[in-house]
Each structure stands twice: as C-alpha cells, then as structure tokens.
Amino acid sequence: MQTVFSIAIDAFAYGMVLFVISIGLSVTMGLMRVVNLAHGAFAMIGGYIASYAAQNLGLGYAVAVLLAVVGTVIIAIPIERLLYRRIYGAPELTQVLMTIGITFCIIGIANYVFGPTLKTIPLPPALQGSTDLGFRSIAVHRLFAIVCGLAVAGGLWYAIEKTAFGVKLRASVDNASMAAALGVRTEIIYAVSFAVAVGLAAFGGVLGAELLPVEPYYALRYMVTFLVVVSVGGAGSIPGALLACLVLGGIDTTGRYLMPEFGEFFFYLAVIAIICIFPHGLAGRAR
C-alpha cells in the first residue's frame, strides 16, 4: 500500500511536469503544424536561466522562475522570427531538420557557456521537506508540481474555451485560412501562442528540475518524451495531453520503481503499443 501510494504521488507529479512542458508543444503543433523538436531546448534554457539567477545572482525562487520564463521568451522570439517563419507549411522532413539543427546549436552553446555539469536550482525553504497529509507524508515539492500542473491545465482550459482569444485560436486550429478570411489575425495568434508555449516550457523546465535534471543534453534526452506525450495525446488537445501525461508518467514511474534494471524498455514498448492502436493519438482526430 505504501509503495502504491508513493508510486501514485511520484507518477502524478512527474506527469504534471511533463504536462506543463509539453502542452505548449501540443498546442503549437496542432496550430502551426510544425514538428518542433527544439521544444525541450527551450525548457532547458529556462532551467539554466533559473539556475544562474538563483545560484550565481542569489535571487529568490519566485524571481528566478519569472526571469526564466521572460528570458526564454525573449531568446525564442528572434528564433521564431528568423527561422521558424520559414518552415511553416514546409514538408515534415524540412521541419525536423531545421528544429534538430536548432537543438544541436542550443546544446553546443549551453555546453560552452555553462559547462557539461548538472545544474541545480535551490528550492526555497517553504518547498523543502515534507508535509503530513494525516495518513502519510509527501514531499512538498511534489505537491507544488502537482498544484502548478493543475493550475496550468485549468488556466489553459479557461483561456481556450471561455475567452475571445480562445475562440480565435480554436478557429485557426480548425482552419487557418478560413479564420483569416473571417478577419482573425492568424499571425498574431501564432506569435502569441508560440510565446506562451515557450514560456510554459521554460516554467516546466524549472518546475521539473528535480525530476529531469538540467544539463546540456537535456534537450536531446527528453525531446523524445515530450514528442511522445504530444503524439500519444493527439496534437492540439489539452485533455488528450493531460491523459497522455498521466498514463505515460504512470508507466514510466511504475517501471522505474518495480523494475529499475529495465529502465525505459517498458515505456517505449507502451508508447509503440498506444500509437499502433490509436494512430491519431488518444484524443486526436483524423485529418
């Protein structure tokens, strides 16, 4: 019972971190049809900025998180303007190559600037230690990750379902040229959602630094995991991504707890099985 409970909590926290990082990827992929392999690199940049701010500049955790999100968005904007603009609507292979090239560059630069060592982001005292839930105690940081994930999911759900921007966004996802013909400025929608996606990735990178340690090859190592979440959930679907994160987080964490020597084996087996059964993702639609 003890083991089941701790697996459940860890899986939930891990799934939520995955969700925060990959939901931006899912939305931009559904919206702009760009296979963006560089998304993990933005999460990594966020982690590095937060680590630098907290460790070298001695700033507080909240300020570091804020700096990480803003800084990553600022770094990402010129990349979007100069490079991503050219591959919207290009064949998949082109998009894969361009974004993998961007990932390689970011890894190389991170390796050069920050060195190949692991970076930690010191937690504030309030998030350290564990809290008592009455029948069991769990780490506060895990709880914090879960709350943040739920908050992001709720916020996005509200923004997409209930606001005017959400209506335009959904229209552009369904049919971009039709939406443009009806007077929706799709370019602005694209730019805003790209910025939000990158910001969320950076936030997730900082939030998940305990579970997915920040190092130069972060972008390559977890790129697969984020892509898997998106394609298992179905591009552009928030409930799908949430479900995929919980399922995959559960499988991965259970595998690690019960059969650590087989590592990722069952994770990838499950991914292959899910995609073979649902080729458009759990909540995706056939196009």
């Binding site: 697969v224 892509l227 898997v228 394609s231 298992v232 991914v271 292959i272 073979c276």
Partner: peptide, 21 residues
C-alpha cells in the same frame, strides 16, 4: 502504421527499444 508526427515518434521509440534490448 502511422503518418506524420506519430510516425516520427514511432521510429524514435523503436530505436530506443532496440537500444535498450
């Protein structure tokens, strides 16, 4: 079995599966 992004993810999962095996 799949097309587009899921196809790419399948190929990546396969190489990791072979590697782990």
């Amino acid at each position: 079995r799949a097309h587009g992004l899921p196809q790419l993810v399948l190929s990546i999962s396969l190489i990791y599966l072979f590697h782990e095996f």
